[in-house]
């Protein structure tokens, strides 16, 4: 089932990298319309270390080094630093890569199999802690790997994230997840 596949992915895939496309889908007069499309790359290492880089249409980096979450916005040239703790539940990267293993996953999410669609087996993850800003998180599994993520917010807007060319257990540099503040950027600690 999708839940079993996702649990074994969380337990066995300690690190991976790849690319993603994210489509923002709004209902306009009853039918879905893609309002924005983002693309970028990701790399992660459990637990709690990931870099989720939006490259297009603008550059923005979400980086977790296991303790802190760094959000860098290139247009504003600003870095926001937050405790990783509660910020974890709110981003696609955190849902897919944040948990240390299946036990940690169970601690944070209730997982349920839902009917398959688009050639994938799907599960639904509901965050146990009230803070998660998504009220619906769907994960589409294919060959044991998460291929799609469906995040619906309370305004009915859906973010459909598709992961591509995922490479498991890639060679990672020792300081791969150490965040370096870009020159001249303003830094705000929260």
């Amino acid at each position: 089932s999708a839940v079993d596949q996702f649990k074994s992915f969380v337990s066995n895939t300690k690190s991976a990298k790849g690319e993603f496309v994210q489509q923002q889908i709004k209902m306009v007069d009853g039918n879905p319309k893609v309002s924005k499309t983002f693309s970028g790359a990701f790399v992660f290492a459990r637990p709690g270390k990931f870099i989720w880089t939006y490259q297009k249409p603008y550059e923005q980096v979400l980086q977790a080094d296991g303790e802190k979450l760094f959000i860098f916005d290139k247009d504003l040239n600003q870095v926001t630093i937050k405790e990783l703790g509660n910020a974890l539940g709110s981003s696609p990267a955190a849902i897919l890569f944040g948990s240390a293993g299946a036990a940690d996953l169970d601690k944070n999410f209730v997982l349920k199999d839902v009917p398959s669609k688009q050639g994938m087996e799907w599960l639904e993850a509901t965050a146990k802690t009230k803070g998660s800003q998504f009220d619906h998180i769907g994960i589409g599994m294919k060959d044991g790997v998460p291929y799609a993520l469906e995040l619906r917010d309370q305004f009915g807007q859906v973010s459909l994230v598709t992961l591509k060319s995922m490479e498991k257990n890639p060679a990672l540099k020792a300081d791969q997840f150490k965040f370096v503040v870009p020159a001249g950027a303003d830094v705000f600690r929260q």
């Binding site: 924005k36 800003q133 305004f155």
Partner: peptide, 21 residues
Amino acid sequence: PVGQTIAKITQNERGALLEQE
């Protein structure tokens, strides 16, 4: 930053409405 709606503010002749997640 990950594209999820935080707040929607609407203003028209009937007044103003704030919807927050």
